[in-house]
Design a protein around this nucleic acid. Structure first.
Lengths: 180, 180
DNA sequence: CGGATAGAATTCGAATTTGAACAAAAGGGA
DNA sequence: TCCCTTTTGTTCAAATTCGAATTCTATCCG
């Protein structure tokens, strides 16, 4: 309704920094991962997410939600990675509609090789530049932004479901933090 | 060299929040702009950047640098937008290699219609959720991150050049802040 | 049970993005 | 002036992404 409240100079500065920093960082990370390990940015993220998931596996929809990617896009990428042997598909016994993407040993091995570089770059370009207060502000502020958006509408809503369809108690409680 | 310094829990939280918040925000903004005005996210950004530039025009390379996009990608998009009449190309008299992308009246008019929604959404989803301290931390911290990355290596380096090739003193000193 | 509705993933064609190769022009010495 | 290197923007094919169907399954309710 009422007229628009435009951004103040500082808000504008913050917004530009936010979007630009993200774009530059993502580009750098992707270039590195591609050059040294043949991984696209999305592929790295997929490996990382799966490595942290309970059985190193996630349902397609959950994974898509976590990555904020379209379902069809994920179908495509998982297909590519399956060809490469980094991931395999497993269908769910109790729900024939569901499909799990499972990290293979090869996939895990590749992630373990790629992660140090990735994390090193993130540290160098991001965390080494920020103060602890700034890091906390980011975690808190952007965490809240994320939480609200995830709750509200939008195509990308988590499926909730939880730990149904579990394959077996293979243990392997998650993995080291190769996520970032 | 030395072994990797992995991320602390808080760093991890910050990094996830940073990437996820950006992805969710971008998606929302793009959906809106597309649905209501037929503009992709990149197209909106192009309009916004041009509207703020000295003569409502920028050289292709400068624009690509500012948007953190590839040159070829920009060529394509400017082509599309030229078809739509939102932008036109102007070549530079003093340097035959250079090409300016110029915002047309139509383009400016469309931006003026789209900007209130865009900014409104940014405010609602982002700034209304953050405290002033958090906004400052973002602006300062991520601003510094950006500055360092822009300085260092990477395909996306600004061309510096400045205000050569100016067409004429058409005035129209920039425009309102439709940027964000 | 039967039928309607919703959910999960994939398919498919169109649009976009990417990166390498290219053409054209500027700039910089010898 | 004549090369040689750099800068600019475009072109092109291949890879990726997007979104609207499509298919198949589950779930709910009478």
């Amino acid at each position: 309704m009422g007229h628009t409240r435009w951004l103040t100079d500082e808000e504008k500065r913050a917004w530009t920094a936010f979007t630009t920093a993200h774009a530059l960082l993502y580009r750098r990370l992707e270039q590195r991962a591609k050059r040294d390990f043949g991984l696209s940015g999305l592929q790295y993220e997929i490996l990382a997410r799966l490595s942290e998931a309970p059985n190193r596996e996630l349902r397609m929809a959950e994974l898509a939600g976590a990555l904020v990617n379209s379902k069809s896009g994920l179908t495509y990428q998982i297909g590519q990675m399956e060809k490469l042997g980094l991931v395999r598909r497993r269908s769910c016994p109790s729900d024939d509609r569901a499909v799990f993407a499972v990290l293979t040993e090869e996939g895990m091995a590749l992630l373990e090789r790629a992660a140090p570089d990735h994390v090193g770059l993130v540290r160098e370009l991001f965390f080494d530049v920020l103060t602890t207060e700034q890091v906390r502000a980011l975690a808190d502020g952007l965490g809240e932004v994320t939480r609200r958006m995830a709750a509200g509408p939008g195509e990308t809503r988590a499926t909730a479901d939880g730990a149904a369809c579990s394959d077996a108690g293979v243990g392997a409680a998650a993995a080291a933090d190769l996520g970032a």
